[in-house]
Amino acid sequence: MVLVYIDHQDNQIKKSTLEAISYGAAVAAQLGTEVHGLLLGTVTEDISTLGQYNLKNIYQISDASLSNFDAQVFVKTIAAAATKVGATTLVFSHNQTGKALSAGVSALLKAGLVTGAIALPNTSAGFVVKKSVFSGKAFANVSITTAVKIIAISPNSYKVVGGAATTATTTPLEITVTPGQVKITALNKTSGEISLTEADIVVSGGRGLKGPENWGILLDLAKELGAATACSRPVGDAHWRPHHEHVGQTGVQVAPNLYIAIGISGAIQHLAGVNRSKTIVVINKDPEAPFFKAADYGIVGDAFEVVPKLTEAIKKMKASA
């Protein structure tokens, strides 16, 4: 059985979870087995609708100790549940939660783990999963050599496949949960912001924008596109933008459908964080900027003139569509 971890936040199932379910369903089809979900805690959303992603059933553990996230507690609970239901392949999204959980579950079950997976496993000889390595500069094909396998699929790497006319059943699962030692004392949400790793479109700015006071044109473009905003390392280091927006080898690695780089020269460390983006647009006044070599589309020009015009043109296109 393939078991997919159903990650949720604020009572809602995350988009990255839908990708993980779609991926898990494809793995199950490939292995000739069923796909089930594992939900820790409760959500208000009607989870039977997850059947449209071909999820057959959801095992739910609704112990009060699971209302707050604690990796130590969750890892033990997931490992016990996976053993109890006889899961042979576990799938997580390699989002923030998946990064906290998949490794621990791997260690407890002694089940080989591939994180940052970007494709379905090759099961023609063994069980080989392709993952991104060297911060996006290369791929590795990693063989899992244990009976139980764990895959953490990179966000935005597998398309959500929905539309099946089925509903998922829910099966309560009894697992003894040991309360944890970590206490959450504060939760700071940057409300209204689109999550950078989950975003379809990312608009990113560099030193070419000259100062934080000039970010308005970039924010306008991002708003028009429903995009998340990002920045290069020098911009983060200079505190023009918050640290969590820094995209690159030592920051966040993203793989959106569309990455628009404004005033970023394209140092190799920056490219490492973005080169899995499907389409890259570069706007830079320096025609020699190395980023153009990694781009699909480019405009050589002054960002302060080009970006507002671009926002307008997109607005017009949307109005006529």
């Binding site: 080989g112 153009f292 699909d296 050589v300």
Partner: peptide
């Protein structure tokens, strides 16, 4: 050991930028 690396690959080079 639970995993082993079978091989590496480099990403396909970009077709080249279209300038507008």
């Amino acid at each position: 050991t639970l995993t082993s690396i079978e091989s590496f690959e480099l990403p396909a080079p970009k077709a080249g930028v279209k300038l507008v």
